[in-house]
């Protein structure tokens, strides 16, 4: 058989695949009649196929479906939510933006708690902050939910949120602001953010 051309074996496989041309088939048949080695090769190939094909049909175990259904991921709703999110990217972007915006704003929203900027020589009496006579406070003062009485001097800005500012002989070098309502407070916050932002470039 070693003397037989390789194309004879190729023809055998073409034949077994069922896509041999008539011409090749005739050549193959002619060769097989003369060559017992190739005949044997052909037989062995056919036997091999018959051997594999005699494999029994295998069926899945009885509870197979059940097992598959158990393994499926549960979250039908989550899938729906994901789909919706994918379809509406702009709404999602807007929602995310609003969320973070409101978070920062609400964080700073004046709640009922009293608070004051820490400065070394301020006197706090209940909800009233006093700058004592003769003292000089260096820096800004912000008072939330409380009153501010200035008897001494402030070398900086003064801001009072939800409270009263009282000064008789006060000396304040910076600006004085009183904020009572939400809108004003918002405006103040925005100005503050803008100022902080500008400060980055200075």
């Amino acid at each position: 058989m070693s003397t037989c051309p390789q194309y004879i074996v190729d023809y055998m496989h073409e034949y077994l695949d069922g896509d041999i041309s008539r011409e090749h088939e005739q050549q193959l048949k002619k060769h097989l009649q003369d060559c017992s080695d190739c005949q044997q090769h052909m037989h062995q190939l056919s036997d091999t196929i018959a051997f594999v094909k005699s494999a029994a049909h295998i069926t899945a175990p009885p509870n197979f479906e059940e097992q598959v259904m158990k393994r499926l991921p549960k979250p039908k709703q989550r899938l729906g939510v994901q789909k919706w999110l994918r379809r509406h990217p702009i709404i999602v972007a807007a929602a995310v933006f609003l969320f973070f915006m409101s978070a920062t704003l609400l964080n700073n929203y004046p709640n009922d708690e009293f608070s004051v900027t820490k400065q070394p020589n301020l006197v706090v009496d209940g909800q009233t902050v006093i700058v004592p006579e003769g003292e000089v406070v260096k820096g800004d003062i912000v008072v939330k939910n409380g009153d501010l009485v200035i008897e001494g001097e402030v070398d900086g800005n003064v801001t009072v949120i939800n409270g009263q500012y009282m000064a008789s002989t006060a000396v304040v070098t910076g600006q004085i602001e009183e904020i009572d309502e939400t809108f004003e407070w918002l405006w103040y916050e925005m100005k503050r953010m803008a100022n902080d932002f500008m400060a980055l470039f200075e």
Binding site: A55, H57, I58, T59, A60, P61, F64, E65, V68, M69, L72, K76, L79, G80
Partner: peptide, 24 residues
């Protein structure tokens, strides 16, 4: 459309073929 149970029929239809393939 989100009906998970409808998948049971798909499994029923192909379970033996797929299992056989994997086994072989």
């Amino acid at each position: 459309k989100g009906d998970q149970n409808a998948f049971t029929d798909v499994v029923t239809l192909y379970q033996h073929k797929l299992y056989q393939l994997c086994y072989r």
